[in-house]
Amino acid sequence: MARIAVRVYNNEINDLIDHGQIDEAIAHCRHILQTYSKHVETYRMLGKAYLEEQRYGDAADILQRVLSSIPEDFISQVGMSIIREDEGNMDAAIYHMERAFETQPSNHAIQDELRRLYGRRDGLEPNKIRLTRGALARMYAHGNLHDQAIAELLAALSEDPQRHDLLVLLANMYYHSMKKVEAAETCTKILEKLPYCLVATSLLVKILEESNREEEAKPFRERWEELDPYAAQIDSNTHDTEFVPDQAVTLIRLDWEPGAYGEEKGQPAWASSLGISIGGEDRSAEAVPDWLSDTGADQPEPSESPFGGSEEGEAPDWMATPSGSNEQPEDDLGLFPSEGEEEVKP
């Protein structure tokens, strides 16, 4: 049986989604997760596949888990905006689209979509989308203007301390400015709320290992490797996963049988305007395998904490969040909390 690099496999899955072969893409995602059960990029592809098939309940659950690991993820923010608008929650839809805009402020499609959402909520579309502090900070960061980015981030966080996406960027800026104490403190703060945040975990590993504190770094390294198996292949010559060769992590490719999961679906025009392919009827009631059945498809009401636990079923240990709590999770047992960040001051 043929083996395939995990990165190459994820790229193939993305191509399948873009060409409307959603059922095959979902099958391959599930196959990868049987081996690498916490691989964030595969969850991201799975959420995108559910979104494009308009299985919004499943998509919301997965995309929110991705956002708890990668709070700034562009695709997940756009996807959650689409889902919340479909639910009629315009404040949450705008909140997520604003986060997507901050990630790509020069994206004209996102600007147009954000104006449309404002118009639908307020009755009048603004002529121009103003840059937020978060967007400005990211522009500084892309230009390697670390001190300016830090100043904007601190100002934004003084207004909204719960912006985990900005905290992640702040930790990065501190690290690249050689302010490792501040970076470590920021990572620790993030991990208290989002214990499987990918960037915070990887930065903390680097800081501890660079300080010859390998034993303290060990549990964080193990978690990093769960989120990204390529992290296990880092050595003295490859200081980050991006430098690890694709073939360093492989698995047996699923021999998928066409037609076993239904037909390919068409694509609405509004999705194309955002560069997203959506297809298929709602199949949220379709049975899912045991490893995915307890992710908590029911979403809490807007008044509940965005990190609250699911009311349906009992989550497996690696997804567990404190039961009966309206606070953001502070344990380190779960990969992703069952709800995302859209209700944090939408």
Results as ranks from 00 to 15, higher is better:
residue 257 E to T: 11
residue 255 D to M: 12
residue 234 I to S: 03
residue 218 K to V: 01
residue 238 T to V: 15
residue 78 V to H: 02
residue 146 H to M: 12
residue 263 E to W: 05
residue 223 R to W: 06
residue 264 E to H: 10
residue 250 T to L: 10
residue 278 I to N: 01
residue 252 I to L: 08
residue 334 G to I: 05
residue 84 R to T: 09
residue 345 K to Q: 08
residue 193 K to Q: 09
residue 345 K to M: 03
residue 76 S to V: 09
residue 10 N to A: 13
residue 136 L to H: 00
residue 66 V to M: 07
residue 1 M to Q: 14
residue 258 P to R: 05
residue 100 A to D: 05
residue 193 K to A: 11
residue 224 W to A: 15
residue 207 I to G: 04
residue 57 G to K: 06
residue 310 S to I: 01
residue 6 V to R: 10
residue 121 R to F: 07
residue 126 P to Y: 03
residue 256 W to H: 07
residue 200 A to N: 04
residue 293 S to I: 02
residue 147 D to R: 08
residue 136 L to M: 14
residue 185 E to I: 02
residue 233 Q to S: 14
residue 84 R to H: 15
residue 178 M to I: 06
residue 9 Y to D: 05
residue 114 L to V: 06
residue 226 E to A: 09
residue 7 R to I: 08
residue 142 H to P: 02
residue 72 E to N: 14
residue 115 R to V: 00
residue 54 Q to C: 13
residue 294 D to E: 09
residue 71 P to G: 03
residue 175 Y to S: 06
residue 165 D to Y: 01
residue 98 E to L: 03
residue 320 A to L: 11
residue 101 F to P: 02
residue 131 L to T: 09
residue 259 G to K: 10
residue 140 Y to I: 02
residue 314 E to G: 05
residue 336 F to T: 04
residue 220 F to R: 01
residue 333 L to Y: 09
residue 287 A to T: 05
residue 199 V to S: 13
residue 262 G to W: 00
residue 161 P to H: 14
residue 77 Q to C: 15
residue 116 R to F: 09
residue 205 V to Q: 03
residue 321 T to N: 12
residue 216 E to R: 01
residue 61 D to W: 11
residue 328 Q to G: 12
residue 131 L to Y: 08
residue 33 L to F: 12
residue 71 P to Y: 01
residue 195 P to A: 15
residue 116 R to K: 10
residue 84 R to V: 01
residue 172 N to A: 06
residue 325 S to E: 05
residue 306 P to W: 02
residue 344 V to S: 01
residue 337 P to I: 06
residue 133 R to N: 09
residue 56 Y to W: 13
residue 172 N to Q: 11
residue 37 S to M: 09
residue 120 R to E: 13
residue 172 N to E: 09
residue 148 Q to S: 14
residue 195 P to Y: 04
residue 276 I to D: 00
residue 200 A to F: 01
residue 314 E to L: 11
residue 270 W to K: 07
residue 103 T to K: 11
residue 324 G to W: 03
residue 274 L to Y: 04
residue 133 R to P: 01
residue 82 I to S: 00
residue 65 R to M: 03
residue 156 A to C: 11
residue 120 R to S: 09
residue 191 L to I: 12
residue 259 G to L: 10
residue 125 E to D: 03
residue 292 L to E: 02
